[in-house]
Each structure stands twice: as structure tokens, then as C-alpha cells.
């Protein structure tokens, strides 16, 4: 036996990572400054990677000439239409699978078979079916959004506590009220989490589809700049995509805070 003589040491350190908002801004600003310094001081060649100031100037010129908006507006429109249609269809099918036995197994079988296909591989087929114009791009986008939306909607519905549905039934609430007031609100957190996935999927597919066959759009613009070895504009296009992603993510954050205030 060994003798003990001393205080109990604190042992519950760590495992408590915190957010420091100022540190996220400082990190990004710091990286850009470092990048600029490396270019200005001649530590790196700007032939293959322009410096932030040159990208900024390029962006400014694109904005002034209207070229940026001409491409961005086309992309935003495709994104809005494709995502919305894909999401609406996904919600409808997800709801059916989540609620009805008759839809569940058949629906999930089709989803399981089609979901793993990389949607970008369908672009050639969609071009044959819907033409090289807007149709094929919107369908690619919508299709890519459709499946994850189904999966998240079904998962959300399945996750609604059975007890809450039984409560609604105990009070003899009509079916429609149970769906609208219990099942859907209960599934909403999962559906909104799915929006984060589907918006980023939509941006990826948008750019890819625009690179395969489009004259306008951010994807087409980036590809064209690459073909012309116009690194400034190429990087300016990437910055726009990054900002687009950030804006969408910020908007979704606001939406979540507004709709899920009860959590």
C-alpha cells in the first residue's frame, strides 16, 4: 500500500475548443497580407499566382466594365432556379417517402440507385436530352440538389419523436395538422442542415456545367481566363466564387437562427 499526502490535481483540462470570431477575420487578413508581402518582396513569382493587389485590380476592372455582373447574374439565375426546383421536388418526394409506406421502399430504392452517380457524369446525357443551352444546366443542378434534399427530409421526418406524433393523435388532431404542425417543424433542423450541403453542391455543379458548355457564367469565365493564361482574371473568378459561397452560408445561418430560435 502506498501513502497519499497531497491535494487532488485538476484533471479536467482540454476538450473545450472555443470560437474566437476576431481570430477568424485576423487569420484571413493575415494570410492575404502574407501573400501580398511574398509577392512584393519577390519571394514568389507572380507569373503563376497573381498577388492580391493584382487580383483586386482585375476584379475592380471587371466590375466597372460590367463583365463581372454579366457573368455573375447568369450564374445566380441558374443557381436560384436550379436549386429551388430541385429543393421543392426533393421536399415533396422526401415527404412522401417519410410519410407513406407505399412510397417508402420504392422511393428509397430509386434514391439509393441514383444518388451515388456523380451528377457531373450526367451532363453529356442531359446535353443530348435537353440541349446545350439552359435546360441541361438547370437539370444538372436540380438533379444534384434533389437527392440530398430527399435524404435529409426523410432523415428529418424519421427523427421526429414518435411521442410527439402520438400526442397529436391523442388530441385527435387531423392528419394535415399533424404533418404541418408536428412532423414538418420537427424535420426542419435536418432539412435546413441539408440546405448547407445542397447549396454547395449546387455551386460545384453550376461551375462544372458552365465549363462544359456555356458562353456566360462564372464557370465559363474562369475557364476562358485559364485558356488565355489570364491568371489575374482567373483568380478574380475564384474569389467571386468564394464570396458567393460565403454569402450563401451567411444567409443560411441567418435563416437557421430565425427559424430555429427555439433551440
Amino acid at each position: 500500500m502506498s501513502r497519499l499526502d497531497g491535494p487532488v490535481a485538476f484533471r479536467a483540462r482540454g476538450f473545450a475548443a472555443r470560437d474566437i470570431p476576431a481570430a477568424s477575420v485576423a487569420t484571413l487578413v493575415g494570410l492575404v497580407l502574407l501573400w501580398q508581402a511574398a509577392a512584393s518582396l519577390g519571394w514568389m513569382s507572380t507569373t503563376f499566382l497573381s498577388d492580391p493587389a493584382a487580383i483586386g485590380r482585375g476584379l475592380w476592372q471587371l466590375a466597372r466594365s460590367g463583365e463581372l455582373w454579366a457573368n455573375l447574374s447568369v450564374s445566380l439565375q441558374r443557381l436560384a432556379i436550379g436549386w429551388t426546383v430541385g429543393t421543392m421536388a426533393g421536399l415533396a418526394v422526401g415527404l412522401a417517402i417519410g410519410l407513406f409506406t407505399v412510397a417508402r421502399s420504392p422511393g428509397m430504392a430509386v434514391v439509393a440507385a441514383l444518388f451515388p452517380i456523380p451528377k457531373i457524369a450526367l451532363v453529356p446525357l442531359f446535353i443530348i436530352w435537353f440541349g446545350i443551352g439552359e435546360g441541361s444546366k438547370l437539370v444538372t443542378l436540380g438533379f444534384g440538389v434533389f437527392f440530398p434534399t430527399i435524404i435529409n427530409t426523410v432523415a428529418g421526418i424519421d427523427g421526429v419523436p414518435r411521442a410527439l406524433i402520438r400526442m397529436g393523435q391523442a388530441f385527435n388532431l387531423p392528419w394535415r395538422s399533424i404533418v404541418l404542425k408536428i412532423v414538418l417543424p420537427g424535420a426542419l433542423p435536418s432539412i435546413l442542415a441539408g440546405f448547407r450541403i445542397t447549396t454547395s453542391t449546387a455551386i460545384i455543379l453550376l461551375v462544372a456545367a458552365e465549363m462544359i458548355g456555356a458562353e456566360k457564367g462564372i464557370g465559363a469565365f474562369v475557364l476562358q481566363a485559364g485558356n488565355l493564361y489570364d491568371i489575374d482574371n482567373l483568380l478574380a473568378g475564384l474569389v467571386v466564387l468564394s464570396l458567393l459561397g460565403l454569402a450563401v452560408s451567411w444567409g443560411l445561418g441567418r435563416l437557421e437562427r430565425a427559424l430555429l430560435a427555439w433551440r
Binding site: P161, A163, M167, K181, G186, L188, W262
Partner: peptide, 8 residues
Amino acid sequence: DASLLPWR
């Protein structure tokens, strides 16, 4: 468990 709707 009272079965309350947490969002109401």
C-alpha cells in the same frame, strides 16, 4: 414526458 413541441 409531457410531449411538448419544443418549437412552440
